[in-house]
Structures are given as C-alpha cells and as structure tokens.
Design a binder for these strands. Structure first.
Lengths: 143, 143
DNA sequence: ATTATACTTGCAACTGAGTTGAATCTGCAT
DNA sequence: ATGCAGATTCAACTCAGTTGCAAGTATAAT
C-alpha cells in the first residue's frame, strides 16, 4: 500500500530480526494495492530468489500473531494478507464473486460499526472484519 | 434457529425436490442455535442414516447458490452454514479465536452498515458479512 | 407394464492450502 | 574455531472440500 513504512524499523519495533525473507514479504505486501494470498506472495518472491513455501507460511503466521499483518478470511478458501501499519488502518473489503478480486474500502464505516458493537460485546471483542460481496464493474460488463 | 420454517414448502418455493437428505440438512440447521460446519452437519445426519459426504457438500453448495442457506467464511478453515429464511435475517457473528465457537449477534448494526455502504458501492454490492473476533466469556475464565 | 429420461446419491481418487517434525544452515557470542 | 539459537528447508501429512463417473430412483412417455 505504501513505501511510507520503514520495514526494518517496523520489524525492530516488534522484536523480530529483519531477515531478507521477512523484508521480502513486507515489500511484496507494501507494493501491492490489495490484500494478497500466500500463494501470490510466494510467487512474487520466487521471481527474485528461491524460497520454501513453509517459510513464507510461517512468516505470515508469525506476523499475523504479532499484529504486523492482518489476515482476511474471504470467500475463496485461501487467506489474504495485508499490512497492518498506521498508514493502513482496518477497513471493509469488497470481493467480487466472479473474479475473486479484493478491493479495500474506506475505513470510516467500519470504525462506526466497531464503536456500535464494542459496547454490547464489552471486552470480548478485539477485532472486526467486514466484507462486502458482489460483482465488480469489470465482471458486470463481461456478463 | 427455529421450527418456524416449513422445510418442504421452503424447498418447493425454490423449485427443489424435498428429498429425505435435503430435508435432513435443513432440519439439522434448523435445530442448531448457531452456524454449523459441513462436518458437523454430516455427523449429525450420520447419527440417523448413512450418507456420503459428497452429497452433503453438494446440497450445501446448491442451497447456498439458491439463497436457502448462507455460507460464512470464518477464521477457521471450514465454511459455516446457517438458514437464510425470513425468521433468520442476516446478522453479524462473533467468533472466539480460542474455542472457535460462533455466536449470532443482533441484526440491527449490520442493517445500518449495509445502508451506509450500499450508497457508495451502488449496484456492485449484494451482500455484507460482518464478523467480530475475540475471546468468549468461557475461554476468558479458563485463562 | 416397459422403456426412456432426468435427477439424486454414492464411490474413489484427486486438489489446494496449509501444517508438522526433523534436518540443515547461518550469524553471532564465546 | 566452537557452540548455540534462530531461520530456513524438505518430505510427508492433514483437512476441507472437488471431480468424474457409476449406480440408484423417480417420473414421464409409450
């Protein structure tokens, strides 16, 4: 989403060593304008160097647990990942069920909903995920 | 969620023949107070009769496409299903990331959010899915 | 009643997306 | 140089479906 993030520093803040692979994962996600699947991240990195998929899955998992990334459960089976830094706050996502493309929406409505639900749920809730499904313009034209 | 639905009639309205298996799937979901995974539905039916998993997956798929059921993409890998009849309108779900339990929340906040997003997205959007994650009371006490 | 047809269910084998456990490899501290 | 922890790899496995096709069942046409 942006080069606004200094990735080595971001990792340092979370107490993680900035290895080449971890930085590569962040760079791929930082350069993308949308949430990516593990598979896409893997392939992009493989265009430059060789990597084992297990390593990438472990990095994604670790980063998600530390809050460096957000993992999105979408319609298709694979998880999607996006940076969770300040420049990229939580927001709803739109997914086209024809082509599967994911698109980020404005954060404001999600913030309002979060405020609304946090009350009744109390300390139980710690994250909200909003996904809008439909058919994107491109796919609509084709049909 | 309720016996308020007349399942044979529900199927008829959707132009589907009310076979024993299709009714069994609806009855299992109707008797549950929460969204269930395919696996759970399968096991419940298997307590009464023998069924092949493929058949259940196909029924779930078909019902979802027809709008008889809603498929939820949650944190854990398996899809969850719930009845989509009038007595059970779309609503947010809460999922505990410790025990994985899913709980239905009040529909109102989702309706408000839907109204808010439908404008900017126009005819592209046809469904919204809200999932709140956290740790449920039971799991909180145990930790 | 008999055949034709379409729909439903079952079986076996397969796929995609991760996950596991153990083996190496690497950087740094002694 | 040696030891050690953390990072990466490899092969094998799991889990949640999917696919293609065969067999069963219901309904319609003769």
């Amino acid at each position: 989403m942006s080069d606004l993030c200094d990735f080595p520093r971001l990792l340092a803040r979370h107490g993680v060593k900035p290895t080449a692979l971890r930085l590569a994962v962040l760079e791929v996600l930082g350069a993308a304008s949308k949430a990516l699947r593990a598979q896409e991240i893997l392939e992009t990195i493989r265009a430059q160097r060789r990597v084992n998929k297990v390593t990438v899955y472990r990095i994604l998992d670790d980063f998600t647990r530390r809050g460096i990334l957000r993992r999105l459960a979408l319609e298709d089976r694979a998880s999607h990942y996006e940076l969770a830094c300040e420049h990229h706050p939580p927001h709803p996502h739109f997914q086209c069920h024809s082509c599967g493309q994911v698109q980020c929406l404005e954060p404001a409505p999600l913030e309002r909903m979060w405020a609304e639900l946090k009350g009744p749920l109390g300390n139980r809730a710690d994250r909200i995920d909003v996904r809008v499904e439909g058919v994107c313009h491109k796919c609509r034209e084709l049909s």
